[in-house]
Design a protein around this nucleic acid. Structure first.
Length: 165
DNA sequence: GTCACGATTTGT
DNA sequence: CAAATCGTGACG
């Protein structure tokens, strides 16, 4: 089933952990999420939302269950899912799905780009969806986030060590 | 308008 | 280790 909007209306870390094992569906393909990172609000200097509300970060402050897609280094897209209630910032970076490692490779694989930004992921006919197929991670590894300089070291990266179908 | 920079990936 | 490549945000 498609995860409802309420799934995302929780604290960012909880959403991040619960996203492991859920299926990312786009471009006619479905693969389980195996690696994510949580990005918080003003106190998290590595998060785009830490600069406050701007045209770009507005979606992160908006209602949950939307996609936040942005271009990084002028050549790769990163997919995030908005968490927390409307008005509270927080999002989860999809770093990897089964067989595909790296946020840039992930979006490339699913052909996700700028046109997906701000789209809800809980709609039946949406371009991007997230499904629950009853798959759960066997264990979850927790580590610092990758590729950041600010707020480095925080244990906000979550990796599914295995998947139990 | 101008400018420095980045939640990456790939090749040397 | 360095290049590729461009939207965003800060500043004037």
């Amino acid at each position: 089933m498609i995860l409802p909007e309420s799934f995302y209306r929780r604290d960012t870390v909880t959403v991040a952990r619960d996203l492991l094992g859920k299926f990312l569906v786009a471009n006619g393909e479905a693969l389980p999420i195996v690696e994510v990172e949580a990005y918080l609000g003003l106190e998290d200097k590595a998060a785009h939302a830490s600069r406050g509300v701007t045209p770009r970060t507005q979606v992160i402050y908006g209602p949950p269950g939307r996609a936040y897609v942005y271009l990084i280094y002028g050549m790769h897209y990163c997919l995030n899912l908005i968490a927390e209630p409307d008005g509270t910032p927080g999002c989860v970076l999809i770093r990897g799905v089964q067989g595909v490692s790296g946020p840039g490779r992930c979006t490339k694989h699913f052909k996700i780009g700028a046109r997906h930004n701000k789209l809800p992921v809980f709609h039946r006919d949406g371009l991007v969806q997230v499904h629950d197929r009853g798959v759960r991670p066997t264990t979850i590894d927790v580590t610092p986030r990758i590729g950041i300089t600010k707020s480095a070291g925080l244990p906000l990266r979550f990796v599914a060590a295995g998947l139990r179908y």
